[in-house]
Structure formats: C-alpha cells, structure tokens
Design a protein around this nucleic acid. Structure first.
Length: 737
DNA sequence: TCCATACTTATTTTT
DNA sequence: TAAGTATGGA
C-alpha cells in the first residue's frame, strides 16, 4: 500500500489521502493532476473505503476516461469493466439505457451528433414553413443547446421579445420531434438524466446511496447543467452526501465559448463548503523561465482562485522570439529552425507547432511540405464523421429504430433510387398530418411516390430480417452490400478510400464486440440494450481518432485548444499578433480577453524545454494582407525572459526601412508591401503598413486607407488598449515612426 | 439529377 | 484565399 503513495509530493499526498469530504484540488499545468486523480481512486479502493460500485468518476473526453482506466488497472489488480468511469455523456447514456422506460425513451434510442442535430433542425424548419433566413438553423441550434446546457426546457426559458418567443416555440417543437423519433442530442443526454433523477425518487435514492465517492476531472470545464447533475447525484442536499473530489484549474478554462462556467469552481467551494482547497503548484514539466512567463501572463487576470507554478528544474533557456515581416517569412523561419533542431538530434514528434486558429496552418504546412518534413495536423474530420460512414450508420440506425427520421432522410435516396424532392415533400407533409415518422408514413401514401419510397422501406425491412441474430460485423457487412453503398463507391472515381473506410467500419464493429463482450466485474452491470444500439451510441459518443498516422515521427501541428493537456520538448507558438492572439472577436470584453489570456497560458505551459514565440507584421487573411501589432501578451512577459532573435530595431515595424529584414535575405515580399502608394491613392506620403505615431494614441500601423488627397482617411491599429481607429489625415497629426 | 457557377463568410470544439 | 452553400440550367 505504501507503494501507491510513494513519490507523491506533500500536496499530492494530502489530496490523495483526503478524508471523505468535499474536496477542491487546484491542479496547475503539469502538476500531476491525472496522477492524483487516479491514485486517489486506487487508494480509496485499496484501503476499502469504497467498493468498485460505489465510485463515480467523470471526465470530459473519452481519452481521459480511458487513461484513467488504464492507469487504475496498472495500480490495482482489478477488473475495471462495468465501473462508472467515463465521460459525462457516456455515463448519462448508460444511465438512460438502464432506465429508458422511466425516461420515456425507446431502449434503442439513437444519439444525434452535432451535424445530425443540425440536419434535424433544418428538417423541422422546413416542415413548419419557417423562414430559415430569419431563424438560421445554426443559430437556433446554439440557442437550444445553450438553454439545455443551462438546464432550461423550452417552457422555462424567459422570452421578452417576439424573436425569442418564436425561438422558444421552435425549441419546443424540436424537442417534440426528437421525442417522436426516439432520438436525443448531446445536451439532451445530460438534461434527460438530470430530470429523471430529479423526478424519480426511487431511482435518485438508489444512485445517491450507491455512489459514495464522486471524482470529477477538468472541473473548470463543466457547464451549469453538469454542475447541477453532479450536485443532485452526489446527494448534496441529503443527510449522507457523497464525497465529491473535484480537480481543475481555473487558469486553464478555455471553453467558455461553449458553455463552460469557470464560476462553477467558486460555487462548488461555497455550496459544498469545501473545508480546504489544495493547490498543486509544483510543476514537473517545464523549465523555470517558461513557468515564470506563464505566471506573469496569467497574473493579469482578475477573479482567479490564485496559484503560482514553480519547479526545481532550474530556469533553463530563454524564450526565443522572432518577429517576421510577413506570414510567409515567419513560416520559413520556423521550418528552418525545425530543420536545425532535427539536425541536432531532436525527434520530430517532440516538436509542436501551435497556432490560435486553424487557418494559420496552411502557410506552415506549405512550408513543411515543400521541404519534405513530415508533419501531422490534429483536428479535422474523424472516422465516424466521414460521410460514407455516416451513410452506413444511417442504415444501421434505421434497422435499430425505424422512426429515426434524420437517418431516414439521409439515406432514403442515397445511393440514388429515384426519390426526388417532391416525393419527399409529400412524405413530410403526410407525416405531419398523421403524426407518424417518415418510415411509418409510407404506408399511408399512394401513387407513384409510394412505389419508390415503399421499395426503400421494404429494403430496410429485408435488412432487419436478414441480419437478426447475426454477429455485428456481419450485420454491417450485409448492410454495406444490400444498401448499394459498396456498389456506389466502387463506381465513384475516387471512391477507393471511402471503400476502405467502409471496410474499416466492419473492423470497428468487430473490435467493439470484442471489447463489449468482456465480462464485467462482480456486482457491475454492463450497458443495457442490444449490441447494435450499443455500437451506434458508441459511434456517436466517440467519433474516433483524428485521421493521420499517429505512429510516425512527425512535427505536431495543432491549435492551442487542441494542445491542452499535451506537452512537448519544444513548442513554437506562432501568429502572436494583436487581433489574432488575442483574437479580435474576444478583445471587446474583459471576459473574452481573459479567456484569451488563459489560452496563452495554456500554450506557454505546453513546452518542456524550449519555447519559441513568433509573429508576422503582415499576414494574408481572408484573401487580404492585414497588418497588425505585436500581441499585447508580449508586454506581459518580463523582458529578461525573452531573447529576441530579430534585431530590436524591427520592433514597432521600424525595420521595414532597413535593407535586410527577411530571414533568408529575400525581400521581394517586403518591397511590394511597402510601396508608398496604394491603388494610386494620395495619402500624403503615408502608406498601408507604415508605422506611425499619434499624439494621443501612441504608435500604431496603418491598416487600410480610403479616399484620397484632402479626403484621405486611414485606419490605424494602435494595439493594446486603443485598438483600431479611423483617422482623417487632414485632421489627425500623424507622423511616420 | 447532376453539374457549373455565383455568392457568402471567415475563432476556438468535445460529447 | 478557399470552403461551403445556394441557385439555376441542361
């Protein structure tokens, strides 16, 4: 037992061995958060304070849940299968399958992913004849999900204006449609579970008395509904509440834009009366200079719970900074530097290239590609999101649940079988009249459309019949043939990859059955439902890997968001320009800016040994060259931690006049940029891209120009604090800097 | 039904 | 720029 607690630092040890009471662990970046969480779980089990079935551990991602299970099995010789360790959505799915009747759902209910949900909303708007210009589907989706995640059903949403009233009405209609079809979206998994617990006392009591210890990972990312769900499940208001062990870092809260409420941490501390917040501040990842920079940056945020990272590893190297003239030069420099690192023996996969937004990867990729350096871009389409896979899954969904109109609409005419828009419209209308699903409505139809659609229904019936009792992989195989999907993609010019993916789906099914069939631990129940429904919910809840060959030794490219939780020996953080990072859409509000700052904090703390920061004075954005100032975050890092690799004269764009400014001496891009006249406009000697000084606003860059001569006006970006100003040259006393 | 062309729009994203 | 959607003609 001692071995479990070995090598923990005093704070970690204190956290792991806390008594059964509400606990809040503020775990800084690289402080051994996962280790503490897993060791706590193992320790509770090993010391007999709780049984396997008395534990609920919840994470946000499948990856984190898997990691916890793997590490737990490595610590204790136990069968973890059947334990309630998983994602919020995964656990709620399991809960709802087990109590589908009480939750008023068919046992085979299907889960809509984000794109399915959007399709369902579009279909609803069409059926109700709602103008989708006035009520854009995406906006409506956001409205519905936002309300669900705050815990509000349509009837509970306050609406003070006609527009909102209409959206609330559509929200109610949407829920009714989902109910008819036997499908639930992501937030619905949570809300439905919450409502069931709230309404059904026997079930609530059962789970409240069962779970004695509730462990929550990444607590700062919880939304309101998740917080309420935890509170209820843990029996917060009851005589014998479960001990909630919440681990998180308010400084790494970067998902506010999708409903995460950092405030949940404060609320938790207060409402659960956490006796003592434990801070994990010793960092095992980065060298001192990197941590000093991170601490300095995040110190500018208000409303923090407070925390300061430290290390005993020494200060290490300075942070290297490079200011390029243009995005292309920045990319060239980064790639050149990477080549040097690799020549010096660095392994490519230890090098990460981070950026604020996905669009920035293009220049970088281009540069890497042309120099033949292997790289891997994270993000993008995942396995279960590919169209051919979604088509195949739609057939499977119809076998499991014929009322799933989203699945029906997706494949009724794919591959094409002569069912046009008019037939479908008729079917939609009839389905409203009879209040039945599209599938069930077909029997009411007559005439020509009924023939074609009827044939489709018979096809699905045959599929269901032929696959009953077959092992899952064979079901999939059969469906791929009979649906005509295989034939379709065989005929398609570039269908080989799609065909390969479809075959991969059979493998995924086989693998799933293999995992799914393992015997559960004693006293544990497995997920209820038939194997097909289980596989389908697995496909929705776990969209699979982001493509790319993970095993290869390649440079890692990703957004800062995607990098959260990861670490690399060397990190390049590119595009550090005001307007890009922090993003211009976020700088208008304090909360927005503080989230950007947390993002910056996350980015900086990814680096173990070496951190590079870079920016470009001009950048191609939306097909136009844009000029920007250095990111305001530079001013938040103590100067002595930075090592400028570009001559200091260049800062503030003074260098545009110096002859050698580009990394490789190639200055054609610059000479084009700095032509003192643009579009023949007379700007009295000024030009776009020029560094200027204003008496009141300070120094900035001319971003754009309009008018000419006496009417000439220019937009000047003054950076931090001031922002972009439109100034008439005849009025404003600008001087070249 | 399919294909070409025009038009729009442009963070971050897991489940 | 460039991807995604919308529209209209064959």
């Amino acid at each position: 037992m001692a071995s479990l607690l070995d090598k923990l630092n005093p704070e970690q040890l204190a956290a792991v061995t806390l008594p059964a009471e509400p606990a809040l662990i503020l775990a800084g970046a690289g402080s051994g958060k996962t280790r503490v969480l897993t060791t706590r779980l193992a320790w509770l089990l090993q010391t007999g304070q709780v049984t396997q079935s008395g534990v609920l551990a919840v994470t946000f991602t499948n990856k984190a849940a898997k990691e916890m299970l793997t590490r737990l099995s490595a610590m204790l010789p136990i069968n973890t299968r059947g334990m309630w360790i998983g994602t919020f959505h995964g656990l709620c799915n399991r809960f709802l399958r087990a109590h589908h009747r009480e939750a008023a759902l068919p046992q085979t209910f299907q889960i809509l992913d984000t794109s399915d949900q959007l399709a369902a909303i579009k279909r609803l708007l069409k059926a109700l004849n709602v103008d989708d210009e006035k009520y854009p589907p995406r906006e409506l989706q956001h409205f519905i999900n936002g309300n669900k995640e705050a815990g509000y059903r349509a009837h509970a949403v306050e609406a003070w204006d006609d527009y909102t009233r209409k959206r609330v009405e559509l929200y109610a209609e949407y829920d009714a449609q989902c109910q008819r079809e036997g499908v639930v979206d992501f937030p619905e998994l949570l809300l439905r579970s919450y409502e069931l617990l709230e309404r059904n006392e026997p079930i609530r009591r059962h789970y409240q008395s069962r779970f004695r210890h509730v462990l929550v990972d990444e607590f700062q990312d919880t939304n309101r509904l998740q917080y309420l769900w935890l509170k209820l499940l843990a029996g917060h208001a009851t005589a014998s509440p479960a001990a909630v062990f919440a681990v998180g870092d308010d400084d790494q809260s970067i998902y506010g834009f999708r409903g995460a409420e950092v405030g949940n941490m404060r609320d938790f501390e207060r409402e659960f009366k956490v006796p003592r917040v434990i801070r994990l501040e010793q960092n095992y990842r980065s060298h001192g200079n990197i941590l000093d920079a991170a601490n300095a940056i995040i110190a500018n945020n208000s409303k923090r719970l407070g925390k300061n990272l430290w290390t005993d590893q020494g200060s290490g190297e300075p942070i290297r900074v490079y200011e390029a003239v243009a995005d292309l030069d920045e990319a060239r420099w980064i790639v050149e530097e990477i080549q040097q690192l690799v020549r010096d023996g660095a392994s490519r996969s230890d090098i990460a290239l981070l950026y604020r937004s996905n669009a920035q990867s293009r220049v970088l990729e281009h540069q890497l590609f042309s120099l033949g350096i292997s790289y891997r871009v994270y993000g993008g389409l995942r396995f279960f999101e590919r169209q051919e896979i979604k088509h195949a899954l739609a057939y499977l969904r119809l076998i499991a649940n014929p009322d799933d109109d989203t699945a029906f609409a997706r494949v009724v005419n794919f591959p094409t079988r002569g069912i046009g828009a008019r037939s479908l419209e008729q079917l939609q209308d009839a389905s409203r009249v009879y209040n039945t699903s599209l599938y069930a409505t077909v029997s009411h139809l007559s005439g020509k459309p009924a023939q074609a659609v009827g044939a489709f229904v018979r096809l699905i019936e045959e599929m269901r019949h032929a696959t009953t009792g077959l092992p899952l992989p064979e079901v999939v195989d059969h469906v791929l043939d009979v649906s005509g999907l295989r034939t379709h993609y065989k005929a398609e010019r570039e269908g080989e990859e799609r065909l390969a993916n479809l075959d991969e789906l059979i493998n995924a099914a086989a693998y799933f059955v293999h995992e799914d069939g393992a015997p559960p631990a004693e006293g544990e129940e497995v997920l209820a439902g038939d194997p097909l429904s289980r596989f389908l919910s697995h496909a929705s809840l776990e969209a699979g890997d982001h493509q790319a060959d993970a095993g290869q030794d390649a440079i890692q490219l990703m957004t800062v968001h995607a990098a959260k939780g990861l670490e690399f020996d060397m990190v390049f953080l590119s595009g550090l320009e005001d307007g890009l990072f922090p993003h211009e859409n976020s700088i208008t509000s304090l909360e927005g800016l503080e989230e950007e700052r947390r993002l910056m904090y996350v980015a900086v703390t990814r680096a173990r040994q070496r951190l590079y920061l870079s920016l470009a004075q001009s950048r191609m954005l939306h097909g136009q060259t844009r000029y920007a100032m250095k990111s305001r975050f530079f001013t938040e890092i103590p100067e002595e931690l930075l090592k400028w690799l570009t001559p200091r004269v260049q800062q503030g764009f003074g260098a545009v006049h110096t002859p050698t400014r580009n990394y490789d001496g190639d200055n054609h891009a610059t000479s084009r940029l700095n032509t003192p006249r643009q579009n023949g406009r007379d700007l009295g000697g000024f030009y776009v891209g020029q560094a200027v000084r204003h008496g009141r606003f300070g120094s900035g860059v001319i971003v754009s120009a309009e008018g000419s001569g006496a009417d000439a006006r220019v937009q000047v970006n003054f950076g931090s604090g001031v922002g972009i100003k439109l100034l008439a040259l005849s009025v404003a006393k600008l001087e070249a800097e």
